[in-house]
């Protein structure tokens, strides 16, 4: 899976180095119905074989103003500049949630303003738990919702690929993880029903849709039911945010990916007391780590990548 074979020691060092950068997104190339990931990089080159591409950005946390990133607006702008610098223009962007830090109106204003700067771009959003504080997401959905379903989830088709945006940050229960709920699951089942098994499917939501590290809340209580509906498809890509780092897992024809944050990194699963910001990034180095590594290409039925990424 990894394009850059590494021994264990340098692998850990490299891994931590990769954790210690922020301010970019992931370019997704659709090739023959299979998604391939590239981190956005200044030296990125186009891929003539890809049928289309889109970009995932995540966890902008507008309103955060502490170490290691005092300028989350600037790092979001830097991410969008990298998107605009791609030789082939991505068809659209997906933002996988935590647009804001505290769901405040001025934070939403800032996010919307920055996303609207420069090139016109189409963006599909799903909320993170930081976007729905106090009002169950009313303000988020008013500004960024697709208005297909009362619960805020939606789907669309793009060049033969079926995209599904799910909401797993509402109706959370004490002691629980992310939550989809019976109503959304019933909708998902119905939404997928008419599709042929050959249709590539991309599902995106904020919290990981697999039990990545439940001790830190990194999972979704009822994700298994959603996966049961997706298992019959030949190519399913699940894109999540929330954990501010790249983790991947492959289960049969379903590949799971989490994205980096445009704001700040978080520690690897279980390292340290909790999933707060990773603060010990050397001063002035945060942005210099942008695009430090190209993400491995993800192709079909391969072994779990997450075992390589877990710390020894």
């Amino acid at each position: 899976m990894n394009d850059h074979p590494e021994d264990a020691a340098s692998g850990r060092r490299h891994f931590l180095k990769c954790m210690a950068w922020a301010g970019t997104g992931t370019l997704w190339l659709m090739k023959g119905g299979v998604l391939q990931a590239r981190t956005l990089d200044r030296g990125a080159v186009g891929d003539p074989d890809a049928s289309f591409s889109f970009v995932q950005i995540s966890d902008s946390h507008i309103g955060f103003h502490k170490a290691p990133n005092m300028d989350v607006v600037g790092s979001l702008r830097a991410s969008l500049a990298l998107v605009d610098a791609q030789p082939r223009r991505p068809d659209f962007l997906i933002h996988t949630g935590d647009l804001t830090h505290l769901s405040r109106a001025d934070e939403f204003d800032t996010l919307a303003g920055v996303m609207g700067e420069g090139r016109a771009r189409q963006v599909f959003y799903v909320p993170g738990e930081h976007d729905v504080i106090g009002d169950n997401g009313a303000e988020f959905f008013r500004r960024f919702g697709q208005r297909q379903q009362p619960g805020g989830w939606y789907s669309f088709d793009h060049r033969g690929v079926h995209f599904v945006g799910l909401v797993n940050v509402l109706g959370l229960r004490a002691g629980g993880l992310g939550y989809l709920g019976a109503e959304q699951l019933a909708w998902l089942k119905k939404d997928l029903a008419p599709l042929s098994a050959e249709t590539p499917v991309v599902v995106f939501a904020h919290m990981p849709l697999w039990p990545l590290y439940p001790q830190w809340g990194w999972g979704t209580d009822d994700s298994a039911q959603a996966m049961a509906y997706l298992r019959r498809f030949g190519s399913v890509s699940v894109l999540n945010g929330h954990i501010h780092q790249i983790q991947q897992k492959i289960e049969g024809t379903i590949t799971f990916h989490t994205a980096r944050s445009t704001a700040y990194p978080q520690p690897p699963p279980g390292v340290g007391p909790g999933p707060g910001p990773l603060k010990d990034v050397p001063p002035g180095r945060l942005h210099s780590y942008i695009g430090v590594r190209e993400v491995r290409h993800v192709q079909g039925r391969q072994m779990l990548a997450i075992t390589e990424e877990a710390l020894p």
Partner: peptide, 12 residues
């Protein structure tokens, strides 16, 4: 009175 953090519901 049970309570939790609505942002991090594993906090109870």
């Amino acid at each position: 009175y049970a309570y939790y953090c609505s942002i991090h519901p594993m906090m109870v």
